[in-house]
Design a protein around this nucleic acid. Sequence first.
DNA 1: CGATCAATTGAGACAAATCAACACCAGTGG
DNA 2: CCACTGGTGTTGATTTGTCTCAATTGATCG
Lengths: 208, 208
Amino acid sequence: MLIQSKFRSGGTTPAATVAGLQPSATSYYPEGAVIYAQGDRAGALYRVEFGVVRICRLTADGRRQINAFLFQGEFFGFEAGAEHEFYAESVNGAGVRMLRTTGDLGAAGLLAVALQRLARAQQHQVVLGRRSATEKMAAFILEMSEGQDESNAVVLPMQRNDIADYLGLTFETVSRALRVLREGGIIRVPSVHQIEVLDRVALEEMAA
Amino acid sequence: MLIQSKFRSGGTTPAATVAGLQPSATSYYPEGAVIYAQGDRAGALYRVEFGVVRICRLTADGRRQINAFLFQGEFFGFEAGAEHEFYAESVNGAGVRMLRTTGDLGAAGLLAVALQRLARAQQHQVVLGRRSATEKMAAFILEMSEGQDESNAVVLPMQRNDIADYLGLTFETVSRALRVLREGGIIRVPSVHQIEVLDRVALEEMAA
DNA sequence: CGATCAATTGAGACAAATCAACACCAGTGG
DNA sequence: CCACTGGTGTTGATTTGTCTCAATTGATCG
């Protein structure tokens, strides 16, 4: 069921890693490939080398919640317990490097990464709990624009269904929210995966 | 109702003791008292000695999202950045001890605490994003019952408004959701702050 | 006892989900 | 080149769940 078609590229390039971690080779995960599954034994730490990774959870009745999209340079895979509570998949074809902890030395660096993730998770809780559909979409575009070049052109690598499961909406509502922003003159949508921000201030006011 | 409510003492101001290096004595924060505010300088670590603490954020238009309720023995106050992104308040009169970050709790211990909080935050994202009002309420009762010794009697120390802001609902909907569970024979509500679980399996199925 | 705030309950409004139809695009094979 | 096809996205019509607004009860306290 879990097709982990891996595409090993050899060689360990020196990379900025958390202190105390030993890097190994980068694995390539095609679109939709599972990096680890819910219930898998935890312990390893991963780093996104290129592409996008999503962290998800399935409920008993099949609904999906995406907790985070992770981009180049971000770490994932750490867990409080022995098993993965969530699963990780490649969104659009991603290169992932597996790292191993060597004990206490990495704890300080890991702590910084974990606190960063916690801050983002808490911010996302506000969006999930107290925002309308259009406001969620505005917040999402701004969140995606962070870390991308500041040219008002934002790339949304994932598909509408992924955005919906991240924001707690349906994909139809995502589509409609984009239309509201578009017809309000706040964004342009030149193609499915591209957003052009026309009025960043308006977006920030909606998302604040 | 609340045992500590007669136990008023003047709470020591947190700002005054930031410079203190030794783990200070427990400060008492009466109901609704602010432990630290949004924008306050971060750095200290806190531990709940008794009572309940809520971690909140206000949006620009006044809506509130509660990220977590913290009970006896739990830590809070760590931040990724230099400022507190959220604020902390006493829910029902709480004793809070301030600790030194690197003194009483090493980086490894702090990491474990942070990962625990991250796991709970991610689980809460699922509840916020993909559950109906009644299911949210079921999940909340189960979450509160963890860490309470008696199996079927669950105490909800906070008021309906707090529950609503934690679950992304209105307090009216919280009240209605409780009624649905009550009329379904799943819980009893002997008093405002007490829940008796009659059918735990049903609750778990709703929250799974 | 009245004052005040919290909680419940009801009626109607509204936002998002659901159900359904159609448009768009890339890949395939005729 | 053109019809097929399946997946993805958009749009429309209707339903449903939650919010909003409003009234009432209940709890707490001076």
